[in-house]
Amino acid sequence: MSWETIFSSNLDADDAAAYGNLVRNLRDAQDLVASMRFDRETVDALADDLAEWTKRLAPLSGPETEQTNGRVPSLPVRGQAMVPEFRVSSAGGGRVDGTVTFGRWFMGGGMAAHGGAVALLFDEALGILASASAKAITRTAYLNTDFRALTPIDTELAVSAWIDRVEDRKIFVRGEIRHGSTVCAEADALFLRLRPDQGLGRRTDG
């Protein structure tokens, strides 16, 4: 079974696009919540709206092997709603390149991306590359992030990740985020290829 098959919810193209539209609107709403000035009437009304969301969504909740989030390969970051949207421009030869724009939802302060959001983006980009290389699900063993310069929000940034080396189940990956010629952050990580008895829907060690 390939990595793509493991992470696929098997949606047809039209359904995948519909789910992508939902995630895109959710991202836009999060950015606007993060940047809003306080207005009690709006806050109360939106809280009521979100309560209705939870009522509609609750009956659709299912196990990991049946969820859609993070399992639509045709969408950026597989439609994973939690992760900054990394858009791949080229992939192959143990390397992937693309772009990311951190919105206000991911701001830490001073119009810069939160350090945790930068690490989250690295975990996704490097992890997907490791899984594609292993043709299996991988798990993060460590992820070291060095912050070299301010990582601006609302600005398209270049992201690169590449396989450093592979040692049996161990896949060593490196990556960087750049704003023009400035390296904003660098990362090096180790991912472990999971054994056949590990994977989706299983909480396992090792």
Results as ranks from 00 to 15, higher is better:
2 S>M: 07
12 D>G: 00
12 D>R: 00
14 D>P: 00
15 D>C: 01
20 G>V: 01
23 V>Y: 00
27 R>Y: 04
28 D>A: 13
29 A>Q: 02
32 L>H: 12
33 V>Y: 12
36 M>K: 11
37 R>N: 13
42 T>H: 10
43 V>G: 05
44 D>E: 13
48 D>K: 11
51 A>Q: 07
53 W>A: 13
59 P>D: 06
59 P>E: 03
60 L>P: 02
61 S>R: 13
68 T>L: 14
70 G>W: 04
71 R>N: 10
76 P>S: 05
77 V>E: 03
80 Q>T: 09
81 A>T: 07
88 V>H: 10
89 S>T: 14
90 S>R: 14
91 A>G: 04
92 G>T: 06
93 G>T: 01
94 G>I: 06
95 R>F: 07
95 R>H: 06
96 V>W: 03
109 G>D: 12
115 G>P: 02
116 G>P: 05
121 L>G: 02
121 L>V: 00
122 F>A: 07
122 F>M: 12
123 D>A: 09
124 E>A: 14
128 I>C: 05
129 L>I: 05
129 L>M: 05
132 A>C: 12
140 T>Y: 11
143 L>K: 01
147 F>V: 09
149 A>I: 13
150 L>Y: 13
153 I>E: 12
162 W>G: 06
168 D>L: 08
170 K>T: 08
172 F>H: 14
179 H>E: 08
179 H>G: 08
181 S>F: 12
187 A>C: 15
191 F>D: 11
193 R>P: 04
196 P>V: 00
198 Q>S: 10
199 G>P: 06
204 T>C: 10
206 G>D: 11
